[in-house]
Amino acid sequence: MFGEDQIAQQIARARETLAQGPGSPGGQSEPILTEAAEGRIKVTLGTDGRFERIKMSLSALKDGPEALVEQLTLAVNNALDQRTELTAANVPAPDMEAMNEQVARMQDASLQQFKDMDAAVRDLMAKLHGGK
């Protein structure tokens, strides 16, 4: 029979495999500050990966819309690149196919165990009702 200890061991192995996988973004503990246009444009990317602030000097605005967009794009992309480097996982991803197979085996074994328990309960109920 597929016992409680065996289920616990399989779940522990599955959790261990998942724990070895890449973590969710979150390796960024401090906001990222980037600059462009010789410091006249500053972009702050928060620890959640969203922009907190874009600050520009008046002289950056005087460069014209095309230059402004180009320099702003450089600052934003630089911030995103830095975040990617900070939050990149340094471990290989878990083998999801193997995980799916392991979970399927657990599911099949659990289903069989429930069928066996159902049969045992039905047997018991039949004996109880038949014995009256």
Score class of each variant (00 low, 15 high):
residue 32 I to N: 07
residue 55 K to W: 02
residue 106 M to D: 14
residue 7 I to H: 07
residue 6 Q to V: 03
residue 15 R to V: 00
residue 38 E to R: 05
residue 114 F to T: 06
residue 22 P to S: 01
residue 98 A to L: 14
residue 48 D to P: 11
residue 62 K to A: 12
residue 95 D to V: 13
residue 40 R to Y: 00
residue 22 P to G: 08
residue 98 A to Y: 13
residue 77 N to I: 04
residue 46 G to R: 12
residue 84 T to N: 15
residue 81 D to T: 03
residue 63 D to W: 08
residue 110 S to N: 08
residue 58 L to E: 13
residue 80 L to P: 04
residue 115 K to T: 02
residue 94 P to F: 12
residue 115 K to W: 00
residue 48 D to I: 05
residue 57 S to H: 13
residue 98 A to D: 15
residue 93 A to Q: 15
residue 121 V to M: 05
residue 106 M to A: 10
residue 107 Q to R: 15
residue 122 R to W: 00
residue 94 P to V: 08
residue 56 M to E: 04
residue 23 G to N: 01
residue 54 I to S: 09
residue 82 Q to L: 11
residue 26 G to D: 07
residue 81 D to V: 01
residue 66 E to A: 13
residue 69 V to C: 06
residue 67 A to W: 01
residue 48 D to M: 11
residue 100 N to A: 15
residue 72 L to N: 08
residue 45 L to V: 02
residue 129 H to T: 10
residue 74 L to T: 05
residue 93 A to F: 10
residue 115 K to G: 02
residue 60 A to Y: 01
residue 61 L to C: 12
residue 37 A to L: 13
residue 84 T to F: 09
residue 51 F to V: 03
residue 56 M to A: 10
residue 109 A to D: 13
residue 85 E to P: 12
residue 54 I to L: 09
residue 10 Q to D: 13
residue 20 Q to F: 00
residue 19 A to P: 09
residue 11 I to M: 07
residue 38 E to K: 05
residue 30 E to K: 08
residue 127 K to T: 09
residue 50 R to V: 10
residue 114 F to N: 10
residue 45 L to T: 01
residue 70 E to P: 02
residue 125 M to S: 14
residue 31 P to Q: 06
residue 61 L to P: 13
residue 122 R to D: 13
residue 20 Q to M: 03
residue 130 G to E: 02
residue 89 A to D: 10
residue 71 Q to L: 08
residue 75 A to P: 13
residue 1 M to K: 02
residue 87 T to I: 11
residue 128 L to C: 06
residue 58 L to V: 08
residue 42 K to P: 07
residue 119 A to C: 05
residue 56 M to G: 03
residue 59 S to I: 06
residue 94 P to W: 13
residue 72 L to K: 04
residue 13 R to T: 08
residue 101 E to Q: 14
residue 71 Q to F: 06
residue 55 K to N: 02
residue 37 A to T: 08
residue 76 V to C: 11
residue 108 D to E: 11
residue 43 V to K: 06
residue 89 A to I: 03
residue 116 D to A: 14
residue 86 L to W: 00
residue 103 V to F: 10
residue 97 E to R: 06
residue 51 F to I: 06
residue 23 G to V: 01
residue 39 G to P: 12
residue 18 L to H: 05
residue 55 K to L: 04
residue 111 L to Q: 15
residue 87 T to Y: 05
residue 67 A to F: 02
residue 75 A to E: 12
residue 72 L to S: 14
residue 19 A to Q: 09
residue 48 D to E: 12
residue 68 L to H: 00
residue 93 A to N: 15
residue 111 L to M: 14
residue 72 L to I: 07
residue 103 V to T: 11
residue 25 P to D: 03
residue 60 A to I: 00
residue 85 E to N: 14
residue 3 G to T: 07
residue 119 A to Q: 10
residue 116 D to S: 12
residue 126 A to D: 14
residue 22 P to T: 00
residue 107 Q to A: 13
residue 30 E to F: 04
residue 14 A to Y: 00
residue 112 Q to D: 15
residue 16 E to H: 02
residue 126 A to T: 11
residue 30 E to W: 02
